[in-house]
């Protein structure tokens, strides 16, 4: 599967095979993390976060790769790990970058850091809220259908609950943001 094919698969909903292929780059990331104060578990979490970022990016119609996909993934991991080391107070020096790494990742990763916090806030909400929001915003189901699935009284109740969930999510997101915590969402 070529790099372009991988991107296409991610874009068109045939992501399973593409993702499995991408995990082939995990050992390299494991080595980088272990050499720099991290564990294998850290590396797996880190790698999965990077995959999520790549996955999200691939869905952007105007996303083009300027290097190999492995290099791109590694660059994301490297940047994220440096950030994590800073957060843990163990950052000593920049980790070695591959020669053809993209240099414009800062903006992307800063944005993703915020979304990671948002993800964490959402996951802390509990199943009902999360299901509701997912069905409404991602699956675009009508409120009445959602009410039936989740077991709420009716459209009105669901609408109110949706806003309550959103408000709570927003509140928690703001809290996390204020703490400046750019923690790994997997450990939430």
């Amino acid at each position: 599967m070529s790099d372009q094919e991988i991107i296409t698969h991610l874009r068109t909903g045939h992501e399973h095979g593409a993702l499995v292929k991408l995990y082939a780059h995990l050992p390299k990331v494991e080595r980088m993390v272990q050499k720099n104060h991290g564990t294998r578990a850290d590396a797996k979490d880190l790698f999965q976060d990077a995959l999520i970022i790549l996955f999200g990016k691939a869905k952007d119609a105007d996303f083009t790769l300027t290097c190999s996909i492995g290099t791109y993934l590694y660059a994301i991991c490297r940047n994220l790990w440096q950030e994590e080391l800073r957060r843990r107070g163990r950052f000593t020096q920049e980790l070695e970058a591959a020669p053809d790494e993209p240099t414009d990742l800062t903006a992307l990763l800063a944005g993703e850091a915020k979304f990671a916090l948002a993800e964490r806030a959402l996951r802390s909400l509990g199943n009902t809220c999360l299901e509701l929001l997912k069905r409404f915003y991602l699956l675009k189901e009508p409120l009445l259908a959602i009410a039936k699935t989740i077991g709420l009284a009716g459209e009105g109740a669901t609408k109110t609950r949706k806003y309550k969930c959103l408000e709570e999510a927003r509140k928690r997101y703001r809290e996390l943001h204020a703490k400046g915590s750019v923690a790994n969402t997997q450990r939430a």
């Binding site: 993702l19 999965q48 999520i52 996955f55 979304f115 948002a118 964490r120 996951r123």
Partner: peptide, 20 residues
Amino acid sequence: RALMRGLDRTALRPAVDKAY
């Protein structure tokens, strides 16, 4: 906007786990 993208991420995670 951030919450929406966060929501996207929660939807992507199961696929990433399954592939793992």
